[in-house]
Design a protein around this nucleic acid. Structure first.
Lengths: 351, 351
DNA sequence: GTTGTCGGTGACAACGTTGTCAGCAGTGTG
DNA sequence: CACACTGCTGACAACGTTGTCACCGACAAC
């Protein structure tokens, strides 16, 4: 045990390339060559190395490997999302994963729950780990701090919410257009008191969806009633409370536009509780599972999180592959899915 | 540009500790001390270092750091799940993330979609990256290959499905008990033709849930009808087809027990399509979003993926902190949630 | 005066890997 | 005969970081 070099009898932790070299009776470099599939190793020697690797259960240490291969990729990307437990984010993440796995790239995902500080910590952590690129569903209002990372070669693609104060690729949905379409459909059926229930106003999607809502009113030459617009429903509980309050007014709205999936679900619970699902029209933004089986079906503006995630991932990998074209903004179309709840007519008189 | 050492004017990629040292006019070791918050650095010097770090946008390279700190943790864990897009897995993952984030540990998640080969690749990748531990929702039937990793100090906790051919911690739910309770409830209401629609039989949860189904029949002294047991419904399409076939038989079942959330959803669609939701009783395993708002409400056996994820993560971190007690098997209780669909009586005569 | 201790600092080696380059013996080219 | 080239192999340095240890001046104890 007093001789120099690694203890070759029984490596304490993981076997290293040196253990393998010693056991196979070759130089470490030759082992490296075999492991990396480099040409120029005699088959007989390669076989000895392979056997040694097998016997020791050797696994190349990726940290050491990428350290040496200067400037080399770590084969990892970071994805910062609001909450994996939200089906929208989860589906998007899954699509990213799919593209990444095909390339042998692993995904580091962090949920940040609308907390700008958690976002900053998550991004810093990803930089420390030298991910090759990042896909960001940001919370924060300003992303200028990422400019430095970008300059140093970090590739960033924003999803769902565009970058602010930064030139970066973006893949999102036609939020304003979708909201406008939904609200126009309600107006067309004669609704005038259409409530808007939306997320925090610092979130661009919320802002855009509200803009679409307002635009529909402008298009129709109808005035909006500011009393019917509620913001900051970033917790289910708040969304429920807001819906309950709106629906218990004497001049309650005849239709609801809920601008996000969790708000839609909260509103559905309240409508059901008040036995108003057949009487108050309702369109949500984002599809909800089983929404088609309710009575009436839940009409929604559907976006395609899989397509958004896939597109973002492909964009990111394109950048990693050297695409240095101008910054791209991809806006995916959305679709109004009519299932019943959005097609209810306004009730003339209410008890 | 011909002088040796790094080009200090304008570091090409990320600034290294050497750039910082040079700019601050100190040794690299002192920078290291400051970065790591080690004691014994004059405040004035520390300040110079901090300023240099700031100016250069230096971020410690975690790969190099953990390489040097021999045997040191990488501050990352791997989570191998079936599919992040499945709410059960997503919720579980979120709970793991939560515990990990509190400790500054990042999570590498991989969806493997019931593919044993993808599972093996994911695990190998995690080992290459020297994650500190892994949480596994396995697909494969044998996990003996992990024994070698375990011996080398890798900590593994299984969730949802127990390890086979390996001693490892496990956190799961009372699958057999939950299924038994559900089917007993159906039998108690007089159902006899109760169909079982389940996932692939290589999956232990599917096996356990089927066992619970059978046990309930044994308990009641009723014979099971093997014609009503369908397996391998690992794709929504298959589940729909199976449900449609069962329900179109002349002697169709009076009740369904769907042993997994996606199968439950598929069955709901078929039942609805055939207008049988009010006539055929139905209990699912796993809760489904909005299941309470359908008419009738969807009765389910609810497990708590958040608790499972949290428990598994805490167990894993406990091991990382040195807990070397005996292997633990945590079985979380499940709960039958009666919402209507499971309480329908069998119809005496059918058209 | 010698010795020891102190806080502070840096030179150096090492972590596990791979890039570079030199060297081997054998063969062909000028 | 010198030289270049071949396929194969290994010695060595380097990646960015941190652990080890020696050393600094100052000051106290003997």
């Amino acid at each position: 045990m007093s001789h120099p070099g690694p203890d070759l009898e029984h490596p304490a932790g993981h076997a290293t390339i040196r253990h393998v070299a010693e056991l196979a009776g070759v130089s470490v470099k030759s082992v490296s060559r075999v492991v990396n599939g480099e040409a120029g190793v005699r088959p007989e020697l390669a076989e000895r190395v392979t056997a040694a690797i097998e016997q020791l259960g050797y696994r190349r240490n990726l940290a050491a490997s990428t350290l040496r291969r200067r400037g080399q990729r770590t084969g990892s990307i970071g994805v910062v999302i609001q909450d994996v437990a939200n089906p929208f984010a989860a589906t998007l993440l899954r699509a990213v994963e799919e593209v990444a796995q095909r390339r042998g790239v692993v995904v580091l995902a962090s949920s940040i729950d609308g907390d700008a500080e958690r976002e900053a910590r998550a991004v810093a952590e990803l930089v420390r780990r030298r991910v090759d690129g990042m896909i960001l569903m940001p919370t924060s209002a300003q992303h200028g701090s990422l400019a430095e990372e970008q300059r140093l070669g970090m590739h960033v693609v924003f999803v769902d919410r565009p970058p602010v104060g930064l030139d970066a690729d973006y893949v999102g949905a036609d939020n304003a257009g979708g909201a406008r379409t939904a609200v126009r459909a309600l107006l067309d059926r004669g609704h005038r008191r259409i409530a808007y229930l939306g997320d925090t106003r610092t979130i661009s999607t919320a802002v855009e969806r509200l803009a679409g809502y307002r635009q529909a009113f402008v298009d129709a030459g109808v005035e909006t009633d500011e009393e019917l617009i509620v913001h900051d429903l970033n917790v289910s509980r708040h969304a429920r409370a807001a819906a309950a309050e709106l629906l218990s007014r004497r001049d309650r709205p005849t239709a609801l536009f809920t601008a996000q999936n969790l708000i839609t679900i909260a509103a559905l619970h309240v409508l059901r509780g008040l036995e108003l699902r057949q009487r108050v029209a309702h369109i949500g933004f984002d599809d909800v599972e089983l929404g088609d089986l309710l009575t009436p079906g839940v009409s929604v503006v559907r976006q395609d999180p899989t397509a958004i995630g896939r597109t973002a991932a492909e964009l990111l990998f394109g950048r990693l592959d050297g695409d240095d074209g101008p910054v791209r903004r991809v806006i995916r179309p959305v679709e109004l899915v009519e299932r019943g709840s959005g097609e209810l007519a306004p009730l003339a008189f209410e008890g």
